[in-house]
């Protein structure tokens, strides 16, 4: 276990800040916010891949679209079906 992870656990610090992990929040299956991303890898109506520190996050569904895109956060809208971390 890395030092950062231990510190985060012992001191109860937010991991997404200490370990730079993505923070993903979803509203039902119609909207998804990914903070702390590392860039877009693939963009299409059925599949969006986002690079994160925890691996590449693959979101599949129908009619997917980017609602917002900035260096800190990505908001994906549409009918979300599957969420997958690829190694």
């Amino acid at each position: 276990m890395g030092l950062g992870r231990q510190a985060a656990e012992k001191l109860d610090l937010p991991r997404e800040v200490v370990l730079d992990l993505p923070l993903i929040s979803m509203t039902g299956r119609e909207e998804m916010t990914i903070e702390n991303h590392k860039g877009l890898m693939e963009y299409g109506e059925e599949k969006i891949r986002v690079a994160t520190k925890a691996g590449s996050l693959c979101v599949s569904g129908e009619g997917l679209r980017l609602k917002r895109l900035s260096s800190e956060c990505i908001v994906i809208g549409g009918q979300l079906e599957k969420l997958e971390f690829l190694r």
Binding site: L40, Y43, K67, S70
Partner: peptide, 28 residues
Amino acid sequence: SMERFLNMASYRNVYFWDVDSSGTGLRM
């Protein structure tokens, strides 16, 4: 390489919203 374009732009702090795919390209 539209993904490259999006990544580069967001790295340079460009803010995009209402990104839609329209045929061959992206509308935003």
